[in-house]
Amino acid sequence: MPRVSDEHLAARRQQILDAAQRCFRRNGFHATSMQDVINEAGLSVGAVYRYFGSKHELVTSIAESVLDDADEIFVALTEAAPPLPLIEALDRALRFIEAQTGPEGIFRFAIQVWAESLRDPALAEFAARLYGRVRSRFVALARRAQQAGELSADADPEAVGAVLFGLMPAFALQRVLTGGPDPKTYLDGVTALLASQGVRQ
């Protein structure tokens, strides 16, 4: 019997994940069954369960993929050479988020992950680990800003990074629920707050 190539396995797995995302976006987690995903993917029951044993496995796989994509962007911001001014790094992060808050964007899925994690301890632990990793990127941004003299020497990069990270889902949530504000308006508000705390513009 011929061996199935790694490329074929990866493509089939992605086919199932894409089908699951469409179902979750259309109907939400709770209203989506594994059979819905199987039908959407156009595959047999055995083919789907070969890759994913439960809806939970689908959710965590999608969430990890989504956050990995976002994390790549934030890593690039923290590793830019020369270092980006803090405000410019935030502007780029907000524009990435803006592009991901439309009907096909990752943040509509992320909101469902947040809600589901309130009732699923395993997913909550998973989300905490992944979001903690993303938050660490903003801590790194704060440290670089401090080294560049943008933040005072006595500022706590962990605390500043946590606040900067918190600004991102807050922006995304407003975009999804209300359609605004736009990145410039939001950044103007962030700039005013940072300036009041000693960040030089």
Rank of each mutant, 00 (worst) to 15 (best):
A115I: 11
G53E: 10
M168P: 04
Q14C: 12
A63L: 04
D91S: 15
G132R: 14
R133G: 03
D36A: 08
G102V: 01
A41Q: 01
Y51N: 14
V139E: 15
P157G: 06
G166V: 07
A10G: 05
L43N: 02
L194Q: 08
P183D: 01
S61Q: 15
G180E: 01
A148F: 00
V4D: 15
A81Y: 10
Q35S: 09
Q174R: 14
G28Q: 10
M168Y: 01
H30V: 09
A89N: 08
S33L: 09
N27S: 12
M168V: 04
S61G: 07
Y131I: 05
F107T: 11
C23A: 11
G179V: 02
D188N: 09
F171Q: 11
A11K: 00
P183F: 00
M34Y: 04
P82Q: 04
A195G: 13
Y49Q: 02
V48R: 07
E104V: 04
A128L: 06
K184S: 09
I106F: 03
M168E: 06
A170G: 08
V139F: 03
L118D: 04
G166P: 07
A155W: 07
T60A: 13
F96A: 07
E125R: 13
D91H: 07
Y51E: 12
P2R: 15
V190T: 15
R25F: 05
A122D: 12
R133Q: 14
S152K: 14
I87F: 13
P2N: 07
C23H: 06
R92M: 10
G46Q: 00
E158D: 15
V45S: 04
A80F: 14
R133L: 12
A155L: 13
Y186E: 00
L58P: 07
A11W: 02
R3N: 11
V190F: 08
E40D: 01
R135F: 09
A124D: 06
G166N: 15
T101K: 08
V45M: 03
A192Y: 08
L118V: 03
S61E: 12
V66K: 02
L86P: 05
L90G: 01
R144N: 06
P2M: 10
Q35A: 12
A140H: 12
Q201P: 10
L167S: 13
G102H: 13
V113C: 06
L58W: 02
R50S: 08
A127T: 06
R25A: 03
L43W: 00
G189R: 12
I73N: 06
I62V: 02
R129Q: 12
L123Q: 12
L86Y: 12
P157R: 07
P183T: 05
Q147M: 11
G161V: 03
F126W: 12
V176C: 10
A145I: 08
V66Y: 09
R3M: 07
S5D: 13
Y49C: 05
E150G: 12
P181S: 06
D154S: 15
V66P: 03
V113S: 08
Q35Y: 03
V59D: 00
G149N: 05
D71A: 10
D188K: 00
A155M: 14
R25I: 03
P85L: 09
R22E: 10
S196Q: 15
R143T: 10
Q147L: 06
L17P: 05
A19F: 03
Y186A: 11
V48D: 13
G161Q: 14
A172E: 08
S54R: 00
Y49T: 01
D18W: 01
P83R: 07
G180H: 05
A31Q: 13
